[in-house]
Amino acid sequence: MPIRAPHSHLFSSINLHVISGKLGHGGRRAVYEALNLVAYIDMMTMLVIFLLMSFSATGEIVFVQKNLVLPDALNWSELDRAPVVSITKDVVTLDGRQVATGDDLNADPATGDSKLTELHENLVTLKNNYKLLHPNEDFLGSVVLQCDKQVEFKALKKVMYTAALAGYANVNFAVQPKVKGAAAAE
């Protein structure tokens, strides 16, 4: 029970009901219960600190699809913003939009062109848009390939060939980083 400074008391022999109600609790037990928010503030503080530590101004560059497992790599570098081409056995997407199917990937290059037409057109469009928006900057020709680790090289080389035709010579493979060794950029 907290210690309070002594104050005026109304003797019970004095019949002033209004005053006694105001001075005491009217003879009733208090119904108020203070809500302890200390634990809540502690939780919020810890949450903010944790989220601040994992904050990235770059944002999410690559959204990994559910059925796509990336390979691991020791000598990795930081991911930069670039068009993202996702390759699985069934579909090829560019920035989330489908541009080729598994049949296109498995088609024999001897019987047809190795170029994926829709992917090529979209990449060229992105390149032209970049040059229009950044007239004073050189076009680096970087593209991020997010490829499932079980995809055969036969399919991957078609995408790389298409990207090279569109002017994207710098291919960056998205990988799961392992313990950072000597970075490739060094």
């Binding site: 990994v64 991911l79 790389m160 060939y161 090279a164 010579a169 291919v171 493979f173 980083p177």
Partner: peptide, 11 residues
């Protein structure tokens, strides 16, 4: 995620 860079000559 991270990246592994590979070069290829433009066709």
């Amino acid at each position: 995620l991270a990246r592994l860079e590979a070069k290829q000559k433009a066709v």
